[in-house]
Design a protein around this nucleic acid. Sequence first.
RNA 1: GGCGGCAUAGCCAAGUGGCUAAGGCAGAGGACUGCAAAUCCUCGAUCCCGGGUUCGAAUCCCGGUGCCGCCUCCA
Length: 463
Amino acid sequence: MLRLFNSLTRKKEVFAPLKPPDVGFYACGPTVYGYIHIGNLRTFIFEDLLRRYLKYKGFKVTQVMNITDIDDKTIRRSNEEGIPLSEFTARYEKAFFEDIKAMNIEPAEHYPRATEHIDEMVSLVKQLIDGGYAYEQDGSFYFDVAKFKPYGALSGIEPGSTKTRSRIDQDEYEKQDVRDFALWKAKRENEPFWETEIGPGRPGWHIECSAMSMSYLGETFDLHTGGVDNMFPHHENELAQSQAATGKPLARFWLHSEYLLLDKSKMAKSMGNIYTLRDILALGYKARQLRYLLLSSHYRKQLSFSLDLLEQAGASLCRIDDFVRNLRSAGTFDADSPELAEATEKCRSRFEEAMDDDLNISKALGVLFTFIRTVNERLQESGISGGDRANIEALLTKLDGIIGVLELGQEDEMPAEVRELIDKRQEARESKNWKLADEIRDQLKEHGIVVEDTKDGVRIKRL
RNA sequence: GGCGGCAUAGCCAAGUGGCUAAGGCAGAGGACUGCAAAUCCUCGAUCCCGGGUUCGAAUCCCGGUGCCGCCUCCA
C-alpha cells in the first residue's frame, strides 16, 4: 500500500485515487525563459519517479505538465532580445524537452501551454467574479483573499503573522489587500495581450495552472506536485482560486520536493548559483549519472550538490553496471537455486515495501545493493543457472521501470577495428606475449573500451 | 519578527523505543589474476551538545548549538 506525504495534512497518507485505477496528476512545469537547471531537474526527476512507481503499482496515470510561456520574465527577456514572445519561448521549450529526454524522464500525457488556454482562464476569472471572489481595478482583476477563509492552509502561513513588508506593488497594479494576487493583468505597453470578455490583458501567474489542471483532469484530481518554493504563494493561490470557483477541493494530495543546494544555499536562477544539464555534460559527466544522483536521495530532503557527489553517484552506478555485465557474461548450468529464487523475490518485495513508504528510494536502493552482493557471491562461488539468471534479469528490468537508470538494452555492434584488436590481444595472451597484450589493452582504452579477462573469457566494458 | 526542516563513520545515506546502527562511495589489508579489472573476504560510527522520561533511546520530551529554507520571483 502506497503512502505519500501530503503537504496539506503534513502527514503520510495512504494513497488511493478518486477513480481507481486512474490517477490524475498535475506537475508544475517550467517557465520557458532559459535553460532549466539541475535543481529544476531534481523536481522533474522526483515527479518521474512518482509517475513510474504509480505505473509499477498498476495505476493508469494521466500526467499534465504545464508550459508557462507567458509571464513577467518571458515578456521581459523577449523584449530585451527584441524578438516575439512565441519565438523566444519556443527556443527554451525545445531545450526543456531535450533536457528531460536526456535525463530519461518519461513524457507526461499532456504539456499544455498557457498561451493556448486563455479562454479557460478567462472563464475561470469570470466564475470568480460572479462568485464575489474577485474584484476589478483599472482593468485588472484580483483575487480577494479575505473572502476565502481556508487561505493559508497549504503553506501554513498565517495572514496576520507575516513580516511587515512594504509590498508596494512593483508592477504598479493596485490591490486592496497586500495578500491579494492578480488573476488577470490589464493590457500594458509592450506586452502581449488578448482581447477577451473581461477586457484586454494577459493572465496572472497562478490562473494558468488552475485553468489547465481542471480542464485536463477535472475539478478535483489526485496529485499535485512541485518544488517547495511553489508552495507559497503559487500553490496556495492556485488552491484558493480553484476551490473558490468550484467549491470543491482541487487536488487531494499535494507533494513538494525539497531544494537542491549549491554552496549552502538553494540553487536558483535568481541567485546565479546554478548548473544546467548542459554545464554538467560539458564537464564530461553523463546524464544518467546525474539522474542517479538526483534520484537516489529522498525528495523531501535537501540535497547539497557537488561534483564530488556526482562522482560518487557515477561510481555507485558503475557497480550496478558491472553487476549487469557480470551476470550476463557468466557461464550457466541447469540446476536452479532455491536460495537465489528466494533472494530475488525478497529483493522485489523489500524494494517495493521501501518505495511504498513515501518513495523511500535510499532504502530501496540499499535493498538492491544487498541483493547484488548476494548474487555476486553466487557468481563467484558456484556460478548461476540459466533460469536464475533470467529470473534476475526480469527483476532488474522491472525495477528499472521505476528508476530508469540501468543499461539493460543490447549493446551496439563493435567497430570491426575494435573487434580485431580484441582478437589480436587474445592471440597475444594465448602465446603469453604479455607485453603486446597490455599494449593492445591500452589502445582499446583509447577507444573507450575496457577489457577484462575472466575465466569465462574476455568481458568488454565501454566507458 | 512569525513559521518550517535538517544534524547518524572521510563523503552520501537507511534506521523514529529493544537482536551485532542497512546500503553506496572513498580508504587499508587479503583472496583471485601473467598483470590488471571485476568479484569476494576482513577492517570503521554509540548516532551535534546538555538534561530528562524509560528496565531500555540515534529513535520520545525539554533546553542549547549549527546549517538550510519559507513569509517577495523561484523546481
